[in-house]
């Protein structure tokens, strides 16, 4: 079962800090919640890069470790 009951909450670790999410939240929804610019970041879920085309489809699960970081290009 992928979706959580709307009233259920789950615990995730977002950028190293514990976070409670209510109901079923996709990665895209989490980014909106956090007001993060989708064109300037990459996302790692449980130590794997999650490509952008998957963000709408992947749901946050209990105890997921989610890291969002800025793209950097300097050298």
């Amino acid at each position: 079962m992928d979706a959580n009951h709307p009233s259920q909450s789950i615990q995730v670790v977002f950028n190293g800090a514990a976070e409670t999410l209510k109901g079923t939240v996709t990665i895209s929804e989490l980014l909106i919640l956090k007001q993060l610019p989708i064109n300037a970041i990459a996302i790692v879920v449980n130590d794997e890069v999650l490509p952008r085309s998957r963000w709408n489809h992947v749901i946050c699960h209990q105890y997921d470790r989610i890291n969002v970081f800025s793209a950097v290009a300097g050298g």
Binding site: V44, D47, E48, L50, S53, R54
Partner: peptide, 8 residues
């Protein structure tokens, strides 16, 4: 982090 191919 392990890099992954974007299917798109």
């Amino acid at each position: 982090a392990k890099m992954n191919r974007d299917q798109q």
